[in-house]
């Protein structure tokens, strides 16, 4: 498999900026695939090749979305933290738009519903986002773990290595966060 062609990605980003939501539909899986690829190489201690382009992609996407100053990636862990957070923002943003589109009676979807797989598809991402915001007041690291695991697709050992903590700790934080989030979500959806 080849890496990302920076040209097509920057074209997609430009289109997305111009309001073409179809571009986002193509972009998200690409960003995600690239994250997975990079994670694999980083963890194997190999050179991933297109690092610069990929990092640029993540930066640019981040900027478009978060409208912030360019961020300096300090290290790998930071990169993944940023990337996973970015995925969260993109997806939540998508879910919001979709909800608006549905309410407005419009039927043009922004991202193909099919892009959301089982497991993910049963989670209300907007509600999950609020619950994560709540959780961040209690424990920022737990939120990071959820972002890396759920939005970044990393395994427990991978997450542990990224954060420099033991897998056992990741597991405890992960389990308790899931329970807490699940309770929050059922509260919001069944008042």
């Amino acid at each position: 498999m080849t890496g990302l062609s920076s040209k097509s990605v920057s074209q997609l980003l430009a289109k997305w900026k111009d309001g073409d939501q179809e571009a986002l539909r193509e972009l998200v899986p690409l960003v995600y695939a690239e994250l997975r690829r990079l994670a694999h190489y980083y963890l194997q201690g190999e050179n991933p090749g297109h690092t610069l382009e990929s990092t640029a992609l993540v930066h640019e996407a981040y900027l478009r979305l978060a409208d912030r100053m360019p961020l300096q990636v300090q290290n790998r862990a930071h990169f993944f933290a940023v990337a996973s957070h970015l995925m969260r923002q993109i997806l939540v943003d998508y879910a919001r738009r979709r909800r608006r589109a549905k309410r407005g009676g419009g039927c043009k979807l922004i991202l193909d519903e099919a892009a959301f797989r089982p497991g993910g598809r049963n989670v209300d991402l907007v509600a999950l986002n609020s619950a994560l915001n709540e959780l961040s007041r209690l424990d920022g690291q737990q939120v990071q773990i959820v972002e890396l695991r759920f939005f970044g697709g990393l395994s427990i050992p991978e997450t542990a290595r990224m954060l420099g903590i033991s897998p056992a700790t990741v597991k405890r934080h992960w389990t308790s966060a899931r329970i807490w989030l699940h309770r929050e979500l059922s509260r919001t959806s069944h008042p």
């Binding site: 498999m1 890496g3 997806l91 089982p118 497991g119 989670v123 959820v146 759920f150 309770r183």
Partner: peptide, 28 residues
């Protein structure tokens, strides 16, 4: 309350990412 909640958490909750990664990229 959390313990009783735990019983309701399905094994797949938050376990798989909300998107799929693509196998092929443009130009492949």
């Amino acid at each position: 309350s959390l313990l009783s909640s735990q019983g309701k958490v399905s094994s797949s909750f938050l376990q798989s990412p909300p998107i799929t990664s693509t196998t092929l990229t443009p130009g492949t």
